[in-house]
């Protein structure tokens, strides 16, 4: 019997080594330890063995069975490994490029807008929005722009035909014309008419001027404006806000300067100059960046705020101009051409 078992083991190992698939494995396994397997057949002969020999023989058979199982396990592991190797394929070449698109990108104007909103958010300003198609009242009249002011001329502002009707843009006066807003200041008026002071808002958005497009002018561009209305707002507060904005945006060594100026809706009014010679392509001491001032009492009266109680400031600037300054871009048209070699620089 012992010889039979040994022979069986030798024969089985030789077979198991050659197994390469799970089906062959199962067949081989069945041939030895299956219900009709060779080892099973030997085990069935146990009944015919004399009683006193049974324990020794049983032990021998169990040992053989154990050895067979070890060999089967090894064969199965080998087959599993071979399967995985086949599934993996050849090793990768890490130097080959990925065919997938590179990272997505925000447009530089979006980056600058969001950065400004983030900085202003810290100073308590919330974003407000308004329509791009506006009426003369919100764009001009409420901002003390007289009816014959050059900015209102059809040479400078895009108008819609008298019969044009816009569903979701309210008119204050029936006979006024629709136009494309020339500044985001119209949003300030809408905000003041809708809410009550104190107010602290920032309105970023697209504006339109009827102008020749060149390296520094664009028929549509973007502005960002801040409005703060409260009691006891001062010129010094306005200067402090601008110092804070530009130090946050462009670095601590940025200085601002006020130059007295004139806007119909602020008094006093200033143009804001920046000194930021650490920026790329800046070769002047002072660069004009925006306009600002203390909200004119007439504007408050126009929206129903008591100008003896409420004071405020407003500040506005062009986003393109700011982006050009920050990134050293020298042609405004690049923002609207959308060449990906330009856009992908702002990942």
């Amino acid at each position: 019997m012992q010889a039979t078992l040994s022979a069986l083991l030798v024969k089985a190992s030789a077979e198991f080594v050659g197994l390469s698939s799970r089906a062959d494995f199962e067949a081989a396994k069945a041939r030895y330890v299956g219900p009709n397997g060779e080892l099973t057949a030997l085990m069935k002969q146990m009944g015919a063995v004399p009683k006193e020999q049974r324990p020794a023989l049983g032990k021998l058979i169990n040992e053989t069975k154990g050895q067979l199982q070890v060999q089967l396990d090894a064969a199965l592991a080998r087959i599993g490994l071979a399967e995985i190797t086949a599934q993996l394929g050849p090793p990768i070449d890490p130097t080959l490029p990925s065919p997938d698109a590179g990272s997505g990108t925000s447009h530089p104007l979006t980056l600058v807008r969001e950065e400004m909103c983030r900085i202003l958010r810290k100073a308590g300003f919330a974003v407000v929005e308004g329509p791009e198609v506006e009426t003369e009242y919100y764009c001009f009249d409420a901002l003390s722009t007289p009816a014959d002011h050059p900015a209102r001329d059809a040479q400078d502002t895009f108008y819609f035909p008298a019969q044009a009707r816009f569903g979701n843009i309210s008119k204050k006066v029936a006979e006024e014309k629709y136009l494309l807003r020339t500044h985001t200041s119209s949003v300030q008026i809408r905000t003041m008419l809708k809410g009550q002071p104190p107010l602290r808002v920032v309105s970023p958005g697209r504006v339109y001027r009827r102008d020749t497009s060149d390296a520094t002018h664009s028929a549509n561009f973007h502005q960002i404006e801040c409005l703060y209305v409260d009691k006891h707002v001062t010129v010094r507060d306005l200067k402090a806000l601008l110092d804070y904005i530009f130090a946050s945006l462009l670095g601590k060594n940025t200085k601002t300067r006020f130059r007295p100026h004139y806007f119909g809706y602020t008094e006093p009014s200033f143009e804001v100059d920046l000194s930021a010679q650490h920026l790329p392509k800046v070769n002047k001491e002072w660069i004009e960046i925006g306009g600002c001032g203390m909200v004119d009492p007439a504007v408050f009266e126009g929206v129903g705020y008591d100008s003896t109680v409420w004071t405020g400031y407003a500040f506005g600037m062009g986003l393109e101009r700011l982006a050009m300054l920050m990134y050293g871009i020298d042609d405004i048209r690049y923002f609207y051409q959308n060449d990906l070699r330009f856009l992908k620089q702002f990942t």
Binding site: C117, A123, F125, A126, V127, E129, D237, A240, F270
Partner: peptide, 24 residues
């Protein structure tokens, strides 16, 4: 002289209904 406006800290009290517009 507008260049003589003394510097100050920007003070920003949080306003109660200061949420950004849903459009933004």
């Amino acid at each position: 002289g507008t260049d003589r406006v003394p510097p100050a800290l920007a003070v920003g009290p949080a306003l109660a209904d200061g949420d950004d517009d849903p459009i933004a």
